[in-house]
């Protein structure tokens, strides 16, 4: 395996639990991530899969340091970023990009697509030749140049997600976090967005953490997979190994629960009952 871009050791994240907040005073902390160890190898796509409450999104946000870990170490590209302050992080941001789940909420409604894509460029000292760079970013994700002057409400869901990708990749970052980026899309759009990401990741040699609840999508896109449950890693291995020889019962349950688009009368039967 290649040298890791991310090296994570004993990662813990605790967040205030608002459901248990007393009337007066601070909310108690709830431990969302309970000590994770893993590496993300350079230049490959790693899937992070889990059900709701598994902590997969929290993990993603800790990797790009939108959240500060409460314990453990996050080494990015040889540098310890676990507790870096916002100002110290800023020069690293261009290499820690993110594509969001909901492209509606992740695009500012009052900015044109061009201005949305240009923002990270300007902020990271690539403000020269902005027009050409924006045009290149649009072209890269297969959007016509005319979209530069549009607003988010004038775009379809798939187009919005393309803008999200264009924006994240405009800086040619070393790392991209993709958080459930196709879960809100129709299957046909989903297929387009995934093939686009697949192609760009290969062309640009990106290191991607692909968070998803859908193992089917992960199999296609990712070289290795981390399966999470309740803030801990259940299983982590190469994709083919995981799908062909899952080691853990939970992984097998997850696989068995996916309704494949094929007829299988036994799938819904708890016991050996004849189908009606």
């Amino acid at each position: 395996m290649a040298e890791p871009l991310f090296s994570v050791r004993g990662l813990k994240v605790a967040l205030p639990d608002m459901t248990r907040k007393p009337l007066i005073g601070r909310a108690p902390l709830a431990e969302i991530l309970k000590g994770l160890d893993f590496d993300l190898p350079k230049g490959s796509v790693t899937g992070i899969v889990g059900e709701s409450g598994s902590g997969k999104s929290t993990l993603g946000r800790a990797l790009v340091r939108l959240l500060e870990p409460s314990a453990g170490k996050v080494i990015f590209d040889g540098r310890d970023i676990t507790h870096l302050a916002e100002a110290e992080l800023r020069p690293l941001r261009r290499n820690l990009q993110m594509i969001f789940q909901d492209p509606m909420s992740s695009l500012n409604p009052r900015r044109t697509i061009a201005s949305i894509i240009a923002a990270p460029l300007k902020q990271n000292g690539l403000g020269d030749n902005l027009k050409a760079r924006v045009a290149e970013a649009l072209q890269r994700v297969g959007l016509p140049q005319g979209f530069a002057s549009r607003y988010r409400h004038e775009l379809s869901g798939g187009q919005r997600q393309r803008v999200g990708i264009a924006r994240a990749l405009a800086l040619s970052p070393k790392f991209v976090l993709a958080d459930e980026i196709v879960s809100g899309l129709d299957v046909s759009t989903q297929a387009q967005i995934l093939t686009l990401l697949e192609k760009l990741a290969a062309e640009m040699g990106l290191t991607v953490a692909f968070i998803s609840h859908d193992l089917s999508v992960i199999r296609r896109l990712c070289r290795q997979v981390i399966v999470m449950r309740e803030g801990a890693i259940v299983e982590a291995s190469a994709t083919d190994t995981l799908f062909e020889k899952p080691q853990q019962a939970y992984t097998r349950d997850l696989l068995a629960a996916i309704p494949l688009p094929e007829i299988d009368d036994a799938w819904l039967l708890p016991a050996a009952k004849a189908p009606a």
Binding site: S188, Q190, A191, S216, R219, R220, L260, P261, E262
Partner: peptide
């Protein structure tokens, strides 16, 4: 047919997820 080809299948990753 296109819808079926677009639907992801972990048993057959490269025959599925075909854009319409």
């Amino acid at each position: 047919r296109a819808l079926m080809a677009a639907t992801p299948r972990y048993t057959d990753p490269f025959a599925s997820l075909k854009p319409v």
